[in-house]
Design a protein around this nucleic acid. Structure first.
Length: 201
DNA sequence: AAGGCATTACTGACCGCTCG
DNA sequence: CGAGCGGTCAGTAATGCCTT
């Protein structure tokens, strides 16, 4: 496999010149550019992504923690995240959690090890205190309203919608109201159920 | 001839990890 | 502990052209 060092040795130009000629950044004479590009084509040169990440000190990876994939809430969020990632040149790594705290902690540890530049929790089981502890290792974004103001979050104001829904139900003289959940394991910890209950009261 | 400026291409440091 | 992996980046020397 041809490396940038190989191109440098064969062309007689320094590694930096070869790098600039192929990336299009910086000053390179048209002659040098042509020679280097022709050589790169001839030897089927492909930049080493690992080396690029090492030199740049960035992975351009964003981890997205998904508790479930089948739920429309998560698939809609994921769709928007993917759209933005294409625009900004970031790569998205899907991290399934199934609300497993150990898994969520593992993902936070990977953020600490710089496997990701940032972590997006579409939903979570771990506490906000834990999220706070890991904030110094990289941006962590939640997809629901956090109690702590120092945690970044992007979310819909569900309270307004729920209140409107309950008002409407009241108007219809509905007295027995059932809640439907896609999550059957420990629904009492669900933020959705907690919000429902508060608004209902 | 001297000075200023733009362009070109170089060297060396650096990234974080592994391996001898 | 230091070399090496394969890149990028910053700093700088060399060169050429233009103006005074």
């Amino acid at each position: 496999m041809t490396s940038l060092t190989d191109l440098s040795k064969l062309s007689g130009y320094s590694k930096a010149t070869v790098s600039r000629a192929l990336s299009g950044n910086g000053y390179v004479s048209p002659e040098a550019r042509t020679i280097i590009q022709d050589l790169a084509n001839e030897l089927d040169y492909t930049p080493n992504a690992i080396a690029q990440e090492l030199a740049a000190g960035t992975t351009k990876n964003i981890g997205v923690v998904l508790s479930y994939v089948k739920h429309p809430f998560f698939s809609q969020i994921l769709e928007e995240i993917l759209d933005k990632s294409f625009e900004t040149g970031y790569k998205i790594v899907i991290l399934p959690s199934n609300y497993d705290q150990n898994l969520e902690l593992q993902y936070l540890e990977q953020l600490r090890k710089k496997a990701f530049e940032a972590l997006i929790f579409t939903s979570r089981k771990i506490s906000e205190e834990t999220v706070l502890k890991y904030q110094k290792y990289g941006p962590i974004i939640l997809c629901h309203k956090p109690k702590t103001k120092t945690i970044s979050a992007s979310y819909a104001e569900r309270e307004i919608g729920y209140r409107d829904a309950f008002k409407w139900l009241k108007k219809q003289n509905c007295t027995n109201i059932g809640f439907l959940f896609s999550r059957y394991k420990s629904p009492t910890t669900s933020v959705t159920l907690q919000t429902y209950s508060e608004i209902y009261k």
